[in-house]
Computed example of a mutant assay.
Amino acid sequence: MTRLSIDWTTETLRLAAPFRISGHVFETSDVVVVTLSDGGHRGRGEASGVYYTGDDAPAMLTALEGARAAIEAGPTRQELRAILPAGGARNAVDCAMWELEAARAGQPVWQLAGLDAPRPLRTTFTIGADDPAVMAERARDYADARSIKIKLTGDLDLDIARVRAIRAARPDAWLGVDGNQGFAAAQLDPLIAALQAAEVSLLEQPLARGREQDLDGFKSPIPIAGDESILSLAELPTAAGRFDVINIKLDKCGGLTEGLMMAGEARRLGMGVMVGNMVGTSLAMAPGFVLGQLCDLVDLDGPTFLTRDRVPGVEYRDGNIWAGEEIWGAQATPVA
């Protein structure tokens, strides 16, 4: 093993406007950026953590400091999974290890992962919960978006009005909705009936984490995705028979290494695969873009909410995302 040095910084990302989901409003987001060096090459990783588990920047920094010696000893990415638990700290280190490995090998990350050359990916663009008319206007503003995700809050009548307003504004777009744990089981039937009428194609995390058993035997004509309910590879077996799709987020599962493992296991269990993101810059989206090459659904719009992204950054065009190797990987030449 080659010994490494590790450094980290905390940055506060500012959102261009408040972003509301069920139970939370985001105006800023603190991220931790880890840099690993072997003296000749370096690798970086950015993590936001998981706000609803208490995995915030201070918690990530505590975890990193506690694991400093083990990380600087130069473990493999698989060994890292035993050093740090799933979560933001491991995500930042794991992604830094991938970039470091790519720099050493002079190969792109996708090639190291055994994937085909990447292609642009259609991504959803997310509309935070607000007044239906305001949300409809935002949907019109997303003129290039082909896929739109709508944040709901569990207020059934208002949420139905939100969906109807956006469908009227964007009859051409693929629509999915995200409950962010805001609904009760008794609301599912009327909610899904209204979503069907509005031609919504995905219902994400309608029930609270810990209430997964309420989906046992429930048959939905619209695919249901698990997000907060499934944090890591260890929790995947509980998803089978309850969720049709798994939303993998690198901050939840602890990095690209486990994310790739989760995608393979979800396929084996007969579920679809989605890649999502917490609030983050292009440095956080680029590893997700690699995972997205294996996914049915992609939600990597994090930088679109920020007042300022990194340079170079991901490109959004015609409803797609493209993350070039200049952003993260062997050819990365960061400016900011």
Score class of each variant (00 low, 15 high):
residue 253 C to G: 05
residue 148 I to F: 02
residue 60 M to T: 08
residue 322 W to G: 11
residue 281 T to V: 09
residue 75 P to M: 06
residue 248 I to D: 09
residue 16 A to H: 04
residue 25 V to I: 15
residue 272 G to R: 15
residue 11 E to S: 12
residue 6 I to N: 01
residue 244 D to Q: 13
residue 88 G to P: 09
residue 283 L to K: 11
residue 224 I to E: 09
residue 320 N to C: 15
residue 19 F to A: 08
residue 66 G to K: 11
residue 139 A to P: 05
residue 131 D to T: 15
residue 297 L to N: 08
residue 312 P to K: 06
residue 55 D to H: 11
residue 41 H to V: 07
residue 133 A to C: 01
residue 243 F to R: 10
residue 247 N to L: 05
residue 193 A to I: 07
residue 211 R to I: 02
residue 14 R to F: 03
residue 115 L to Y: 02
residue 182 G to R: 14
residue 37 S to W: 00
residue 267 R to M: 02
residue 42 R to W: 05
residue 122 R to M: 05
residue 280 G to W: 00
residue 70 A to V: 07
residue 299 D to L: 11
residue 248 I to A: 07
residue 312 P to W: 03
residue 176 G to F: 00
residue 91 N to S: 14
residue 156 L to M: 06
residue 315 E to Q: 14
residue 166 I to T: 07
residue 316 Y to G: 06
residue 299 D to K: 13
residue 121 L to G: 10
residue 195 L to C: 10
residue 324 G to C: 02
residue 144 D to M: 12
residue 122 R to W: 00
residue 170 R to L: 00
residue 249 K to S: 04
residue 313 G to P: 03
residue 217 G to P: 05
residue 10 T to I: 12
residue 102 A to V: 11
residue 15 L to V: 13
residue 59 A to Q: 13
residue 57 A to C: 08
residue 70 A to H: 04
residue 92 A to T: 12
residue 332 A to Q: 03
residue 200 V to R: 09
residue 142 Y to R: 15
residue 197 A to D: 14
residue 134 V to I: 14
residue 247 N to S: 13
residue 332 A to F: 00
residue 302 G to P: 02
residue 33 V to N: 03
residue 135 M to R: 02
residue 267 R to G: 04
residue 317 R to Y: 00
residue 114 G to P: 07
residue 20 R to Q: 12
residue 5 S to I: 05
residue 286 A to K: 13
residue 254 G to N: 11
residue 38 D to E: 09
residue 24 H to A: 13
residue 262 M to C: 06
residue 113 A to S: 08
residue 301 D to V: 11
residue 234 A to C: 03
residue 143 A to N: 01
residue 4 L to Q: 10
residue 56 D to A: 14
residue 181 Q to N: 10
residue 216 D to M: 09
residue 218 F to Q: 02
residue 275 V to G: 05
residue 214 D to Q: 15
residue 75 P to Y: 01
residue 96 A to E: 03
residue 61 L to V: 15
residue 252 K to A: 06
residue 48 S to Y: 02
residue 27 E to G: 04
residue 49 G to N: 06
residue 293 Q to S: 13
residue 304 T to P: 02
residue 190 P to Q: 06
